[in-house]
Structures are given as structure tokens and as C-alpha cells.
Simulated scan of single mutants.
Amino acid sequence: MPHAALAHPPRWLTASQLHPQPAAVVRDWLFNEDSLTRRLTALSHDGFSVTPLLEGWQRLRTDECAALGVPDGSQGWVREVYLRGHGQPWVFARSVAARSALEGSGLALDQLGSRSLGELLFSDRAFDRGLLQACRYPAAWLPAAVHGERLWARRSCFSRGALGVLVAEVFLPAFWSAADIEI
């Protein structure tokens, strides 16, 4: 299901650009550079799992093309999953890579299944992580089951040579509740 174009796409901002600043505990989750998979595994006391929702070739969104440095309208591999704690969707994640860079790169995004992409990216030292950015994620881009307004999201691009993998993670209300954080 392609994502609708928005009249006002989100403005992805670095920690220093974000005003007003969210509470320190929220900022810690948005801008912490450690593996989110590992942090969620610890928070859930090993009750972490990944549920794939959608995988395949699609036309990438304009903001994704800009972040990956590819022409607007480029095709890419799109993977959408829930990162779950004890079966509850805690984070909605959308990862994309441009077809032009992915093909021939040796990275088999289509083979991940219910494994975490984050673990793969963090275990391959050839990948460099770009700056973390955050925004209030558009409700129209979320699955209907977790549709919510003004949810915090973060994204960063992992690069290895010409290949860029853009990973966006949207923190769902059940996550903040499990982390005992009021937002």
C-alpha cells in the first residue's frame, strides 16, 4: 500500500534543531546512538520480537529520496515492521534502500524475515550511521492499527560505500507506557 503524499511532509530535525526540546527521557530515546533493538530487548526483559508487515519494491517517498541522495520518484526496497515488547507493538519501523544502490550490494534485505535489521546493521562494522533526526510522524503514514497523531519518530541513514539504508522508527503509545515515560 503506497503512502499518500502529504501537503506538509514532516521536517526531520537534528537534536540541536528541535524546538521546543522534548523532555530529557524522550530525547534519550530519540537521539541515543546505541542499537534500538538492544535497548528494546533490555526494556522487555528479552520479550522482544519483530513482526514484518510489508516488504517489497516501491516508489520511495520524496523525503526518503532526498535523505538517500537519489532522484525523486526512485524505486527502492521498503520494509515495514513492528518492533514488539511482549507481543505489543512498541515501535513501527520503516526501512528503505534505493534499488540502484541495493542491487549488487550483497545486502539481502528480502531475506530478513522476523530478524531485526538493526542487529544486522550494528553487527556489520562496514556501515556508518549518519546523524539521528526526529519529527512528529504523519498519522497518514502509519498502519491503521496504530494510527496516531503527533507520535515521535526518529531516523538515520546507515551507509556502506554507495549503499544507504534509511531507517525510521516511530515510538508508539504502548512503548512510552512500557518505559513508564509520560509524554
Rank of each mutant, 00 (worst) to 15 (best):
L132Q: 04
R136V: 06
A126K: 13
A140H: 06
D128A: 13
A139H: 12
A126R: 15
R136Q: 13
R115K: 12
R129C: 07
A144K: 11
V146N: 00
H147F: 13
C135D: 13
L117F: 10
H147W: 11
S114K: 04
H147T: 11
A126M: 12
L121R: 01
A126W: 13
C135W: 03
A145P: 10
R125D: 15
P138W: 08
G113T: 00
G113S: 00
G118W: 00
L131E: 15
A139I: 13
A144Q: 13
V146Y: 00
D128P: 05
A145M: 06
L132T: 04
R129L: 06
H147I: 07
G118H: 01
L121W: 06
G148F: 11
G113K: 00
V146D: 02
S123N: 14
L131Y: 07
G118C: 03
R136K: 10
P138G: 10
F122E: 06
W141D: 14
H147Y: 10
Q133M: 14
V146H: 00
S123L: 10
S114C: 11
H147M: 10
P138L: 07
V146C: 06
R115V: 01
S116K: 01
L142G: 03
G130Q: 07
Q133G: 05
A134V: 04
A144H: 11
A139K: 11
L131Q: 12
F122V: 04
E119D: 14
R125E: 13
P143K: 03
L142Y: 08
A126Q: 14
D128W: 11
R136L: 15
Y137N: 02
A140F: 02
R125W: 07
W141N: 09
L131S: 12
Y137M: 06
L132G: 01
D128Y: 14
R125I: 11
R115W: 04
V146R: 01
L117R: 02
A139Y: 11
R129K: 10
A126L: 15
P143Y: 02
R129W: 09
R129Y: 07
L132R: 01
S116Y: 00
C135S: 10
R129F: 12
R129D: 01
R125V: 13
L117G: 02
S116I: 08
S114W: 00
Q133P: 10
V146P: 04
A134E: 02
P143A: 09
C135A: 15
S116Q: 05
P138D: 12
P138I: 08
H147E: 13
F122P: 09
L142P: 09
W141V: 09
A145G: 09
L142R: 00
R136I: 07
A145N: 04
A134I: 06
L142V: 15
E119C: 01
A126T: 15
A145S: 14
P143V: 09
G113N: 00
H147S: 14
